[in-house]
Simulated scan of single mutants.
Amino acid sequence: MRSTGRTIDGGGAAFLGAALMALGGCATQPADDPEIKAVSTVEYRCEDGTRLGIWFEPDTAIITENGGETLILPQKLAGSGIWYGTDQFDFRGKGDQATWTSGSRPPTECAVEKAPPA
């Protein structure tokens, strides 16, 4: 998949997910399967209230911001940790901590949102 930093609307995100599953040779899984969701998506909560759902691919990150707009960001060369970005969006992190920059808004610090104990 070639990343361009484009955005995908809600319907496009569903299509993208289905296409990725088909291209990867994966069996179709129910969207609400908690095992698949836990493995596939990492949830981040940021200091400014932004919530990010991120699916990491080998050379891209598919990021859903606040449950709406979906972005495909190409991987960048990071000295340490991870870095995905375009001219308008930037996600950098190490361990459970990250920094998210969206458009002209100032960068915000984010952390992996842990699931509450059962």
Rank of each mutant, 00 (worst) to 15 (best):
D87A: 15
P34C: 08
I8S: 06
A61P: 13
N66K: 14
S3E: 07
R92K: 14
A13L: 06
L16T: 07
I36S: 13
L71R: 09
E109K: 13
V39P: 00
L52K: 05
T108P: 06
G93C: 03
T50M: 09
L20P: 00
F15N: 11
T64A: 12
D90L: 01
T108A: 13
G93N: 01
P30Q: 08
G103S: 15
G24Y: 10
Y84M: 04
L23H: 10
L52R: 04
E47F: 02
G17W: 01
A14K: 14
I72M: 15
C26A: 11
S40E: 11
D59H: 00
E57C: 09
L16A: 12
E65V: 15
T7F: 02
I54A: 05
T60G: 00
C26R: 12
G10A: 10
F15G: 12
I8P: 00
K94V: 11
Q29D: 08
Q29A: 13
E69F: 04
T86L: 02
C110V: 02
G93R: 00
E43A: 07
N66D: 15
G103K: 12
G67Y: 08
Q88I: 06
E69L: 09
A111V: 00
S80R: 08
I62S: 06
V39S: 10
V112C: 06
T64S: 11
I54H: 01
S102H: 13
T86Y: 03
V112N: 05
D33Q: 15
F91V: 09
A22Q: 07
A78L: 15
R105M: 10
A111W: 00
G67N: 07
Q29E: 12
G95F: 07
F15Y: 14
P106F: 04
T41S: 08
P117Y: 05
T64C: 04
P34F: 13
G93F: 01
S102C: 05
I82Y: 10
G95Q: 00
N66W: 08
R51E: 06
E57P: 00
T99E: 09
A27L: 14
S102M: 04
A22L: 10
D9T: 04
E109L: 10
R51P: 03
R105T: 07
V112M: 06
E109C: 06
G103E: 06
L52D: 05
T101V: 00
G53W: 10
R92A: 10
F15S: 15
K37R: 13
Q29F: 08
G49R: 11
T86A: 08
G25Q: 13
E43L: 05
V42A: 15
R105A: 15
Q97H: 14
R92V: 04
W100D: 03
R92W: 02
G53Y: 01
E109P: 02
S40D: 05
G85Y: 11
E47Q: 09
E57Y: 06
M21C: 09
I82Q: 05
I82V: 15
P106K: 11
T7V: 02
R6V: 11
A19T: 07
P107A: 05
S40I: 01
A38V: 01
I63D: 02
A31R: 12
L20V: 01
D96H: 01
T28Y: 10
G68F: 13
R6Y: 09
A14W: 01
F56Q: 07
D96A: 11
W83V: 06
P117L: 09
P30I: 01
D9W: 07
G67Q: 12
T86K: 09
